[in-house]
Design a protein around this nucleic acid. Sequence first.
DNA 1: GCACTTGTTGACAGAGCGCCAACAGTGATC
DNA 2: GATCACTGTTGGCGCTCTGTCAACAAGTGC
Lengths: 219, 219
Amino acid sequence: MVTCVSTGATPGPPAGAVRPPVIRRRRLEPDARREQILSVAVRLFGERPYADVSTTDVARGAGVARGLVNHYFGTKKELYLEVVRVMLTVPGVALERLPGGGVPERVDAIVTWFLDVVSRHSTSWLAAISAGGMAGDADVDQVIAEAVDVAADSILAAVGLGDRPAGEGLRGMARAYVGMATYTAREWLQRGALTREQVHTLLAATLLTMVEKVFPRAA
Amino acid sequence: MVTCVSTGATPGPPAGAVRPPVIRRRRLEPDARREQILSVAVRLFGERPYADVSTTDVARGAGVARGLVNHYFGTKKELYLEVVRVMLTVPGVALERLPGGGVPERVDAIVTWFLDVVSRHSTSWLAAISAGGMAGDADVDQVIAEAVDVAADSILAAVGLGDRPAGEGLRGMARAYVGMATYTAREWLQRGALTREQVHTLLAATLLTMVEKVFPRAA
DNA sequence: GCACTTGTTGACAGAGCGCCAACAGTGATC
DNA sequence: GATCACTGTTGGCGCTCTGTCAACAAGTGC
């Protein structure tokens, strides 16, 4: 049996030592403090996988006691869920105006929009979509699934299938396409195996095929 | 400062208590013991994500001291790497004979083979391919990437593009297709949003498009 | 200046992991 | 069959990390 006892060693500065610059604790509005901690967490979880980022790292980055992180976010996993939501929501700015023209033109437009958004937020978006080391966890999976749902609905809307409530088969296929789009983006942005032109060709041709030949059989 | 000291409390059975059935420790051949621990780990990591499986769980499942797990596999992560390798290799039985016929027939054959293999090992394969909670870790990612590489090469070979060494662009596109295939399989096996027929249609039509219209532009 | 609110801190207790010296099966040798 | 050496196996130590909580102190109102 192992028992842990506290020794009286006060961790303060040794007597006579040069007094360190007294960092007086500052009170912030709860929203401001929460936002500050969250931004640090977004940066760290974007750089390293989940297990390699400790709550101590986040607290130190924010210049704050570790307990405060738990005070605002509960557990480390809940903090990470917030981080993933932020990372996946920022790029989620809906494409403002649906492109006009025929199906091929609209397919081309949405692929261009997707590649623009992804390349602009590549690091954080890729870290989040690959779940930064927590894929398999039910809660994290659900947050990712919701983001994929949004993207899938955007695609269905852009190709002109979003007006009527899509059936489960149609949405499942759209989600599968989003999955391929993310994989393809990783081949481009992380691995460098594909050029943007190649990615564009692949995603546009595939989506066109799905719209014309596969989706009609999902009804 | 916190110091941990050991009390003299021997964790043995209380004096006079009913003597528990003496489980005499058994010596196994290193290979046998390693295999036994690994099989338990495969089962547990297939059921729960990485963080929810402790080395204590693995050791208990194998009826063994926890230290023995470290003795055979080093760290928990190395054990997990072995588990992922097993999960991804089992389904990797190469499709024995390349199908004949034209491109559409061969595409159909390889999609059928893929769906057969995946559905047979669905739980463990899906747990591994979604990285069971460690995606983002460099080592785990590499193991998964190798498995995806194998699958991508199999596909290129099956559609008749595997004879000459494929360029990086072609292989990147094939890997992206494998990514979509895994996503689609999850929609089918985990989420139940798609039927096998729908998955088959989607994957076959998409692959055919890629072979005929996209791959030629990757040279 | 004083009291009250509440943002903030530091320590505690528990769990999990890597490591290692000691223990004990198992087969070889006399 | 007794003894010995080899090595598979165990149990515990020290460390890190996490969640919780009582106490502290920075602002604010009176």
